[in-house]
Design a binder for these strands. Sequence first.
DNA 1: AATAAATTGTGATAAATTTCACATTAAACA
DNA 2: TGTTTAATGTGAAATTTATCACAATTTATT
Lengths: 210, 210
Amino acid sequence: MANKGCIIRLSRYRNALLRLKALNFVKVFSENLADSARVTAVQVRKDFSLFGISGNRRGGYLIEELIAKISAILGKDEVQRFVIVGIGNIGQALLHYPGFKKSEIEIVAGFDIDQNKHNRQAAVPILPLEELGNFVEKNKIRFGIISVPDSAAQETLQLMLQAGIKGILNFAPICLKEPQNCVVRNLSLETELENIIYFTVLAEKEETGK
Amino acid sequence: MANKGCIIRLSRYRNALLRLKALNFVKVFSENLADSARVTAVQVRKDFSLFGISGNRRGGYLIEELIAKISAILGKDEVQRFVIVGIGNIGQALLHYPGFKKSEIEIVAGFDIDQNKHNRQAAVPILPLEELGNFVEKNKIRFGIISVPDSAAQETLQLMLQAGIKGILNFAPICLKEPQNCVVRNLSLETELENIIYFTVLAEKEETGK
DNA sequence: AATAAATTGTGATAAATTTCACATTAAACA
DNA sequence: TGTTTAATGTGAAATTTATCACAATTTATT
Ligand SMILES: NC(=O)c1ccc[n+]([C@@H]2O[C@H](COP(=O)([O-])OP(=O)(O)OC[C@H]3O[C@@H](n4cnc5c(N)ncnc54)[C@H](O)[C@@H]3O)[C@@H](O)[C@H]2O)c1
Ligand SMILES: NC(=O)c1ccc[n+]([C@@H]2O[C@H](COP(=O)([O-])OP(=O)(O)OC[C@H]3O[C@@H](n4cnc5c(N)ncnc54)[C@H](O)[C@@H]3O)[C@@H](O)[C@H]2O)c1
């Protein structure tokens, strides 16, 4: 039924809708959402169609209603809590990012092997790695972020699995295997940049010589 | 000829190959690369086939040779230089990340509107935003990273375009329009996390109730 | 030297995703 | 109240991407 790209787009539509709502708009057309997510209007309507989301045949969609429906699909009826393992440059940045709130995402704790990083008193506490299992179990955490050096990524995955984490975003530039019972997404910034380089060079080639 | 996913995979293969080379391996099979990139062996060979990369019908591929060929495709015969605009949490993290070197990616300068961030003496200097145009032109920079707040993302894109940047990675959670003559990739971490939440919840639903 | 085994390379096929074409409906207007 | 207009909703077609099936080739073995 769903389709990978469709979920990413729903997320984008929702973002745009939240902005529109903040500006006191009430209605929106597929064309508007298309613009904001850089896709076509048909794509927007098809995506909605796949999830049984419908609007008003002449008057577009009611923003409030649409946000509610998409939020339900994306599991945003409740706040989703994450832990981060590896509080270095990236982990630090994520830990202190206030913008996750409006996506119903909350970072509840960080974990690190380096004692110097530990801080139980902080708003988002940074704890010794040994406490990961207990913490996750006690607080029923289901999601985690891996931002340790690549050499430690695989073992961090194991720890998270043992702790009972069910969904993981991995920043280490190594493709972790998706285990049974757990969703893993590998996000390599190097790869993202290389991708841009490739398509930029390609575009330049096409423009000049052909 | 190419295909979006294929380029991302080439990047992953290359990563794995660099690791293997570092371990003094000489040959590799499509099956090994498949494991490292979490795809099938046929997919690996098909990707190579699309780019005219060939190996040895019984003996797999020579690692050195393969790295050279993929590197050429990905534009890694020369170091690709980036500037970053917005030296906050994310910008800072990227600026100081040593791991880009092995991908032939170099961050050469940061730019910010906040005077307190400026530092001409640093290894990677952080300069006033006003100097972006000159710097890019003088140093023939083609790539940029946007890590300013979402409200400033669109204007930052404009500045980069005026400066002559040709490829951009945008971290602000807003989908910037891809202009003529410039490749833009919008990477929203919120969206990545939402994606994981969706597929995790989906997997749980399938597992239990069905 | 002949045979067997293992791996690549790729056209054909299948699956996934997007786009098209157009029927349907609600609102606006005359 | 009828007619026009502007949107949605969706099956069908087209396109893109991944998989399959198997021929071709190299290496190893007898
Ligand atoms: N910083 C970037 O811009 C950037 C860019 C691309 C990829 N990455 C990747 O993201 C990951 C994190 O990068 P970073 O720059 O934040 O690294 P970092 O070195 O700044 O931080 C890593 C942190 O992980 C901790 N750590 C190490 N081993 C651990 C373990 N086994 N368990 C728990 N904690 C452990 C360290 O103490 C440190 O605090 C790395 O894999 C890196 O390759 C980072
Ligand atoms: N930090 C995260 O974990 C995270 C997560 C998801 C998305 N993001 C997005 O990434 C972007 C950067 O996030 P951050 O946490 O680093 O933000 P930040 O607030 O820490 O840093 C933003 C920096 O941009 C500078 N800036 C503001 N306006 C500017 C302008 N017009 N020109 C140049 N510089 C300008 C500010 O001085 C500041 O140094 C934001 O759009 C944010 O929504 C961040």
